[in-house]
Amino acid sequence: MIELIPLILTTIITAATPLVIAALGEHVVERSGVLNLGVEGMMIMGASLGFAGAVVLDSSLAGLVIGMAAGMAMAGVFALFALGLATNQVATGLAVTILGLGLAGLIGQSFVGMPRPPIGLISIPVLADIPVLGPALFRQDVVVYLSVVLVVGVAYVLRTTRAGLILRGVGESHGSAHALGLPVLKVRLMAVLFGGLCAGLAGAYLSLVYTRFWSPGMTAGRGWIALALVVFAAGQVWRLVAGAYLFGAIMIAQLHAQAGAIGIPSQLLSMLPYLMTIAALVVLSMAGRRGTGAAGSLGQPFVPDR
């Protein structure tokens, strides 16, 4: 049994990493007061274009970068409408998801079934030699390490820097922020693009590292789980990371259940992340109006009066 632990840990980390990255991006977006429901669409565009790019250039790293760019481009479409034209954010986000799913399928059509070699693993000296846990935790691909850097970086920027304070201020009350002369739309544009970058990277990770092939609709609702995670996290980055690993573990358990290794219907496990999000919302709401931790102007279009 003990020799299985590293294997299980590694699969959980691999399953959780795209969730961490995509949810972290959306967390920043929502802190700035924008609700972008297009995560699934941005993610699958990252998966499709990232895979296509990797095949054409024969480089998985280049594929990851192209995936980020694809996610950002979709975020740019969202920003053009939701920020530039102040359209309804929910509708715009849904449109981006639907557009992304279709467009990714079209672009990826000629790449279905092509294999990709695994991406190289990086061992951290000394730490990787720790028995049992060492190889599981400290022999990972570059994106896993990047996700740790992103988590620490985002938490630090949001909490202690002026840029982070401005971002939170813009999200809490865009009216007040505008009155103080803070560039509301510019801050939101940056946040939305960052969110797109993260979603694109998460998608490219799925097709290039996690499954190592492209198939249409392969994100399979992970974008929605990332959105649920942001709600579940209620404004706390640590809760977001904990939730991502928990949901990642549940997804692995669900795969095993599908294979009959666990005696629970796999559908129940598929539901679990959403059920837990609802449960978390109930608990948070009982803590009072402010308990859910959503930004004050979340989802409201902003039009400066000039």
């Binding site: 002026r162 939170r168 201020g169 809490e172 009350s173 007040s176 009155a179 103080l180 004050g296």
Partner: peptide, 26 residues
Amino acid sequence: VFQHFSLFDDLSVLENIALGTPGARA
């Protein structure tokens, strides 16, 4: 000093002051 306060409800008093002060951190 605005009539309708340009404050941020969820942020602390110090953070509110920082947001209105150029280059300041809380």
